[in-house]
Deep mutational scan, measured.
Amino acid sequence: DAPDEFRDPLMDTLMTDPVRLPSGTIMDRSIILRHLLNSPTDPFNRQTLTESMLEPVPELKEQIQAWMR
Rank of each mutant, 00 (worst) to 15 (best):
D1A: 13
D1T: 14
A2H: 08
A2W: 14
A2S: 09
A2P: 15
A2F: 15
P3T: 05
P3G: 05
D4Y: 14
D4E: 14
D4I: 15
E5H: 15
E5K: 13
F6E: 01
F6A: 01
R7I: 09
D8I: 02
D8Y: 03
D8T: 03
D8V: 02
P9S: 07
P9E: 04
L10E: 04
L10C: 12
L10Y: 09
L10S: 05
M11L: 09
M11S: 14
D12G: 15
D12P: 03
T13S: 10
T13L: 08
L14K: 01
L14G: 01
M15S: 02
T16R: 12
T16M: 13
T16E: 12
D17S: 05
D17G: 02
D17A: 15
P18A: 01
P18S: 01
P18C: 07
V19A: 01
V19L: 04
R20H: 04
R20Q: 06
R20K: 10
L21Q: 01
L21T: 04
P22S: 05
P22Y: 05
P22F: 03
P22D: 01
P22T: 02
S23Q: 03
S23M: 04
S23W: 06
S23P: 01
G24W: 03
T25Q: 12
T25G: 06
I26Y: 05
I26C: 08
M27Q: 01
D28T: 01
D28Y: 03
D28Q: 06
R29D: 01
R29I: 07
R29Q: 05
R29N: 05
S30D: 13
I31K: 03
I32A: 05
I32Y: 02
I32E: 00
L33Y: 07
L33M: 13
L33A: 08
L33H: 07
R34L: 14
R34G: 11
R34M: 14
R34H: 13
L36R: 00
L36S: 00
L36N: 00
L37D: 10
L37Q: 13
N38R: 12
N38S: 14
N38T: 15
S39C: 11
S39W: 08
P40C: 10
P40E: 11
T41D: 07
T41Y: 13
D42V: 01
D42W: 04
D42K: 00
D42C: 07
D42E: 07
P43K: 01
P43M: 03
P43D: 02
P43R: 01
F44R: 02
F44E: 02
F44K: 02
R46F: 15
R46G: 15
R46P: 06
R46W: 12
R46S: 15
Q47P: 03
Q47K: 10
Q47H: 11
T48V: 13
T48R: 14
T48C: 14
L49M: 08
L49N: 00
L49Q: 00
T50S: 12
T50G: 06
E51N: 07
E51I: 13
E51A: 14
E51W: 13
E51R: 08
E51S: 11
E51Q: 09
S52R: 10
S52L: 10
M53R: 04
M53G: 05
M53V: 06
M53L: 07
M53F: 05
M53Y: 05
L54W: 05
L54T: 01
L54Y: 02
E55P: 00
E55I: 15
P56A: 11
P56I: 06
P56V: 07
V57P: 01
P58T: 10
E59R: 11
E59K: 11
L60F: 06
L60P: 00
L60Q: 01
K61P: 01
K61L: 13
K61D: 04
E62W: 12
E62T: 10
E62Y: 13
E62F: 11
Q63K: 15
Q63G: 03
Q63P: 00
I64Y: 03
Q65S: 10
Q65N: 12
Q65A: 13
Q65E: 15
Q65P: 04
A66R: 13
A66W: 08
W67V: 03
W67I: 04
M68R: 08
M68K: 09
M68F: 11
M68L: 15
M68V: 13
R69T: 13
R69A: 14
